[in-house]
Design a protein around this nucleic acid. Structure first.
Length: 208
DNA sequence: ATGTCGATTTGCT
DNA sequence: GCAAATCGACATA
């Protein structure tokens, strides 16, 4: 199922309202089918969001900002929605998150996989792949590497020239969305069981 | 000052 | 299938 066939002609940035309205799980749903675009070093790379995970600051033990945990790293999460939260995982990988909810409500959506759309050659180069593979953008660390996102981009607004999320008219309806528990959060106790990972059914671009 | 541990990926067995 | 890679955030002292 190639979602890029459904792309409309117009692409416009999401409004700040998008990021601040509704529960983070609903926003994580709505982000499926949106475009994640980077323009670094005069190289544009674009991917359709295929897989997301929701993290809620209120009562979600898997969330870095759970129960008001406010540190230098999580500070951006407590700001308004529509900003980038990038952090280093396992000392190796930058993971990209979209901050949602209003100021002081620290929710976020992790982007775990994209369907490559623009700048495929650049993505492959950054990933060290001689040609596009299913694994090129499958997994949160793979997405950031392919798009060139690093911790330097922490705190950027998501409607900027270099980094932004766009709506191109693709709508993913409920029946097309598969829900499952989030990956790698076993430490979170019963919250590890929450079905807050969302993928587009049938997409070959989801992570393993 | 020090010790633990990741919202992962990759390569080798 | 398993383990190494790699480093900063965080907690504890």
């Amino acid at each position: 199922v190639e979602i890029k066939n459904r792309l409309g002609r117009k692409r416009r940035p999401l409004s700040p309202r998008f990021y601040e309205t509704g529960h983070v799980t609903d926003i994580a749903h709505a982000l499926l089918g949106k475009l994640l675009v980077t323009d670094f070093d005069k190289k544009r790379t674009t991917g359709l969001i295929i897989e997301t995970e929701a993290y809620s600051g209120e009562g979600d033990m898997a969330c870095h900002s759970h129960s008001g945990k406010r540190t230098a790293r999580t500070e951006i999460m407590f700001g308004p929605g529509g900003y980038a939260y990038v952090y280093l995982c396992y000392g190796i990988h930058s993971l990209f998150n979209i901050i949602t909810n209003v100021k002081e409500k620290a929710d976020a959506v992790l982007i775990r996989a994209i369907e490559p759309v623009d700048g495929i050659e650049t993505m492959c180069q950054r990933r060290g792949h001689s040609q596009l593979k299913k694994q090129t953008c499958a997994g949160p660390g793979c997405v950031t590497q392919a798009l060139g996102i690093t911790r330097d981009h922490y705190g950027l607004r998501l409607d900027g020239k270099e980094l932004r999320i766009e709506d191109a008219g693709v709508v993913i309806e409920e029946p097309e969305i598969h829900e499952s528990p989030r990956i790698g959060v076993e430490y979170a106790g019963e919250d590890a069981l929450l079905p807050w990972r969302y993928t587009i059914k049938g997409s070959p671009w989801v992570s393993k």
